[in-house]
Amino acid sequence: MPPKLLSPVFPCLIFLTLLLLSFYSSLLSHPPPAVPPPNRPLCNLFKGHWVLDPTSKPLYDHTCPFHRNAWNCLKNQRENMGLINSWKWVPESCALPRIDPARFLGLMRNKNIGFIGDSLNENFLVSFLCVLRVADMGARKWKKKGAWKGAFFPKFNVTVGYHRAVLLAKYQWQPKQSTVDDQDGLKGIYRVDVDIPADDWVNISDFYHVLVYNTGHWWGYDKFPKEKPLVFYRGGQPIFPPIEMLDGFKVVLENMVSYIQKQVPSRTLKFWRLQSPRHFFGGEWNQNGSCVFSEPLQEFQEQGCEQRSETAEPSD
């Protein structure tokens, strides 16, 4: 008597059993991650302190092509650079490993990173490009899409660009039309449209997967003195009654945040950078001031710098 034919379901059951066994064995070889204690504090990278580490060295040297010559402290042999480069930031409740340029670019493969704002973002960008270049020495300068500067990393197909928009909002110089009455000393105004983004970045949102915004250091009377003030417009009309500079700053931020939320794709990862404390010694940047510090500012020094910045009065 010939043997009975096996049901066609039987091989499927065998395959399913083997698959489940394989999956179960993988669970045994990879135990589930430990659950963190319920009272463990969240990682706050911004709460910590500077630690001197003599073994810490820069990832790049003075030959990085993305440096601006005047700002290349390594090439210009600024004093105490060894000490300055030995400081590292250590958060209180978590570890902050040093950036791995190759791993970072690998994670960002086929993506683009954009910085929008003033020189705070520009300065960070220069250092950032030099760090990433360690993993791709074929990186080359990139200034497309209206970028002020940037770099393309062909090994990973990653583009990093900076778009200069110091107020974020659109602003333009309008000289004084009449010279009949010059007693007020007014030479003209800078018209600021609080609800219109600057042309430098209004059309680039779709290109970038990550965007980093900042503004702040240009909102002062050293940049816009009383003879060349900022005058704020909304909907094409002057805001009435007129508002002061810091109030205008708040209105611009509110409008730019609203624009970003509505117009920048939701898939785009967005960051906002804060200001850095002023650290010039012997005067401001345009008054023979210089940066002579080789150690991080203490907390009371930072507060003092911020207070001086906020209470600055127009110069005569």
Rank of each mutant, 00 (worst) to 15 (best):
P3A: 14
K4A: 10
P8S: 13
V9G: 07
F10C: 10
L18Y: 09
S22H: 14
S22I: 11
F23V: 13
L27H: 09
S29T: 11
P33Y: 09
A34P: 08
P36E: 04
P38T: 12
N39T: 13
L42V: 12
C43A: 03
N44E: 15
L45I: 00
G48N: 07
L52C: 09
D53L: 01
P54F: 04
T55S: 14
K57A: 09
Y60V: 02
Y60R: 10
T63W: 00
C64E: 07
C64L: 00
N69P: 02
A70G: 08
C73A: 15
C73H: 06
Q77P: 01
Q77W: 03
R78I: 03
I84A: 02
N85H: 05
S86L: 01
W89A: 06
A95V: 05
L96I: 03
R98F: 01
P101V: 10
R103V: 13
R103N: 14
N112M: 04
N112K: 15
N112F: 10
F115P: 01
N123L: 03
F124V: 12
V126R: 15
V126G: 00
C130D: 00
V134Q: 05
M137D: 04
K141W: 10
K144I: 04
K144Y: 08
K144N: 09
K144Q: 12
G146T: 13
G150T: 03
A151V: 06
A151N: 12
F152R: 09
V158S: 04
V158E: 03
A165P: 02
A165K: 04
L167I: 00
L168G: 03
K170I: 01
P175M: 05
P175C: 07
Q177H: 14
T179V: 13
T179I: 13
V180I: 14
V180Q: 15
Q183N: 12
L186C: 02
L186G: 06
K187C: 03
V192D: 01
V194K: 02
I196H: 05
W201F: 10
V202F: 08
N203Y: 07
I204T: 09
D206Y: 09
F207A: 08
Y208T: 08
L211E: 00
L211R: 02
V212R: 08
T215W: 10
G216T: 03
H217M: 07
W219L: 02
W219E: 06
P225Q: 02
K228D: 05
L230D: 00
G235R: 07
Q237D: 13
P238K: 06
P242R: 15
P242H: 11
D247V: 13
G248L: 05
G248T: 10
F249H: 11
K250R: 13
K250S: 12
L253S: 11
E254F: 08
V257E: 04
V257T: 08
Y259G: 02
V264G: 04
V264L: 03
T268K: 04
L269M: 10
L269T: 15
K270A: 02
W272V: 05
P277F: 06
P277E: 02
F280Y: 15
G283K: 12
N286D: 12
N288Y: 13
E295Y: 01
F300K: 12
G304W: 01
C305V: 06
C305K: 08
S309I: 05
T311H: 09
A312F: 04
A312Q: 14
P314Y: 08
D316Y: 14
